[in-house]
Computed example of a mutant assay.
Amino acid sequence: MLLSAREGLLVVVDMQARLVPVLADPDSLSARVQFLLRAAAQLSVPVLASEQYPKGLGHTVQEVADYLPEGAVVQKMTFSAMREPAFREALETGGAGRRQAVVCGAETHVCVLQTAAELVAAGYATTLVADAVGSRRASDRTAGLDRLRDLGCQVATSEMVVFEWLERAGTDAFRRLAPLIK
């Protein structure tokens, strides 16, 4: 099944100040998450973001936070955002009945994995964005991606997601996003 901007929502997991810098290739990760957030804004795709224990891990890194909609962030103590009642409530109200979840963030093998797996279990068609998830070790990232495939997640790249959301060239949204595609 292809992704649809009308059916989709973007979930940004734990892109936090004390976590992102220690991940493999943090600059590329942040750039891909920003790209997804900019596309979501252009295409009216709702966004939810989580912060794991911000007292210890800090808040969302500024370069990502700059693109988050007002009120998108839910703080959590559970590794899966889906186990946080405030996140589930925001998903139900802010997601407006949308059933396609596109997931990015950190760390692939912990909070991203648990959140995405529980989105699948809750009936969401869930896509993990391979170039917009990160872990400290490459082996953990790879194992997380493999396990999520086994658990029923689709795996795509950020460009795949955005082009599927766009559906066609020649639109105003395409013209606005085209300069971001490198």
Rank of each mutant, 00 (worst) to 15 (best):
T78H: 15
P21I: 07
D25H: 13
L19D: 13
G97E: 02
E89F: 05
P85S: 07
G56A: 02
T93M: 06
L23V: 13
R98I: 01
T60N: 06
T60R: 06
R83A: 12
A49M: 03
P46M: 02
H59N: 14
D66V: 11
R98P: 03
L48N: 00
P69C: 02
L68V: 05
G58Y: 11
R83F: 14
L48S: 00
R38D: 01
E84N: 04
R18Q: 12
L68R: 00
Q75R: 14
K55L: 11
L36Q: 10
K55V: 11
P21E: 06
V64E: 04
A49G: 06
R83T: 09
P54H: 05
P54D: 02
L37D: 03
A81I: 07
S80Q: 11
G58H: 02
G71M: 00
A81F: 08
A31P: 09
L57T: 12
V22M: 12
G71C: 04
A101D: 00
R88Y: 06
P46Y: 04
R98Q: 04
D27S: 14
F79E: 08
P69S: 01
L57F: 14
R88D: 09
P85A: 01
R18Y: 10
D27T: 14
V47L: 04
F79H: 11
V64K: 08
R88I: 07
K76R: 06
V45N: 06
L19K: 06
Q52I: 11
E92L: 12
R38Y: 00
A41Y: 04
L57Y: 11
Q52H: 14
L91I: 00
A86C: 03
K76H: 09
E84C: 06
A81N: 15
L29G: 03
M77R: 12
S30E: 13
V47E: 00
P54Q: 07
E92D: 10
A65M: 13
P21Y: 11
L68I: 01
T78F: 15
E92T: 14
V73C: 13
M77W: 10
Q34N: 11
A86R: 04
G94I: 02
P69Q: 00
A86D: 09
V20M: 10
A40H: 09
G94T: 05
R32T: 03
Q42T: 14
R99P: 00
M82K: 06
Y53I: 09
E89R: 15
S30Q: 14
V73T: 15
L43Q: 03
M82D: 04
E70L: 07
R83C: 12
E84I: 04
P54E: 00
S44M: 11
G71Y: 02
L23F: 10
V74P: 01
L57Q: 08
A41H: 04
A24Q: 15
